[in-house]
Amino acid sequence: MNLQQLRYVVATAEHRTMTDAARSLYIAQPALSRAIRDLERELGMTLFARSGRGVVVTAQGRRVVKLAREALDAVHEIEGLANQTVPTDAELRIASTPSLEPGLAGRLLPAYAAEHPGVRVHIVRCDGRDGVVSAIRDQRADLGLTDLPVPTDLITHPLERQEIVLISPPGLELPNPVPMGRLHGMRLALPARGSMRRRELDAMFGKYAVTPVVVLETDERNGWLNAVRAGQASLLWYRGMAEQAGRAGLVVRSLDPAVRRVIAVVHARRRLPLIAQDFLATAEKGTAA
């Protein structure tokens, strides 16, 4: 077994066809098939099963692919040790939801930049938690900042618990905190039906036997705020956005009982680049402080 065979295994698992994998590796398809067969014979196991015009990773193959990725990542990291200087074009990509980006930009990034001035951080703006998960899976981002839960194929590093509050137009006669029962019949702007966040809110409404009047259903956050500014509806959002809402002349109230969500840094189950590992260490150090 050698590193070249491991690269072939990973490429075949990612592309799901020998033809596409061979094209990505710039080798002939028969050469790739032969190398895979040789490795399977050496290991005494079947890594890929034929399925139509493509291949499917077997149960044993999934384990081998996972270890192969880890081995290749480790080799890449070892090679990087030859030069400890961070390249001038080093870039860390962090996916974030709009509601959590202000905290990322205002607190985590300055602390990281102070320790790693040579790294450029690019924020991948995503429309909600589902967008962050997709950015990680598609390798458009190294790390993601979102609320939990996320699918189990991602690793999570919880940072803090953030309160969900009610943001309303001025003039509503409501106590602070607002009892959950007062949400019954309240005009609300909500995420799109079927989205993960909407399902969580619907579960909360069901738990407290309340049925709001849905004025707007969208995942566009500007649409939510515009509806509240226009006096058309109220909005359930994170406490971290309260400052923005206050500047817009809106009223922020807590809920009773309080509702909080865990905010975490998430990433794929693979060895992270060193600059991403450093960001995690900075974030967790800031949380501990």
Rank of each mutant, 00 (worst) to 15 (best):
T58Q: 08
E77D: 14
L6E: 01
L67K: 08
V57G: 08
R62E: 03
A49T: 13
A13P: 07
P87M: 08
G61V: 00
I36A: 02
E77T: 09
D20Q: 11
T19V: 13
R34K: 15
R63H: 05
N83F: 07
V55G: 04
A22S: 05
A22V: 01
V65R: 00
Q29C: 09
G44R: 08
L32I: 11
E79R: 12
P30Q: 02
L67V: 03
D73V: 02
E79W: 13
E77L: 12
E14T: 07
Q5K: 06
R23K: 09
Q84D: 15
G52N: 06
E70M: 11
R37G: 08
T46N: 07
V75S: 09
E77Q: 14
R16P: 03
S33P: 08
R7T: 04
T85S: 13
T17K: 06
R16T: 13
E40L: 06
E77K: 09
L81N: 10
V64Y: 02
T17P: 01
R37P: 04
T88P: 13
A28V: 10
A49S: 15
R37M: 12
R16S: 11
N83R: 12
Q5S: 13
A49L: 10
L6I: 03
P30R: 01
A31H: 13
A49I: 04
K66I: 04
S24Y: 08
Y26F: 14
Q29S: 14
T17I: 09
K66E: 09
T58P: 02
S24N: 06
R50D: 11
Q29H: 13
G80R: 02
G44V: 03
Q84F: 08
V56Y: 13
E42M: 07
Y26D: 15
A11C: 07
G54W: 03
V9G: 00
L25K: 05
H15N: 14
E79C: 10
L72T: 01
A13E: 00
T85K: 12
T17R: 07
A28W: 07
E42W: 05
M45C: 11
Q29T: 12
S33I: 12
H76I: 04
G44L: 07
Q60S: 11
G52M: 02
V9E: 01
E79M: 11
L32F: 05
E79S: 09
R16V: 12
D73Y: 14
A28K: 14
E42H: 14
E70I: 09
E70L: 10
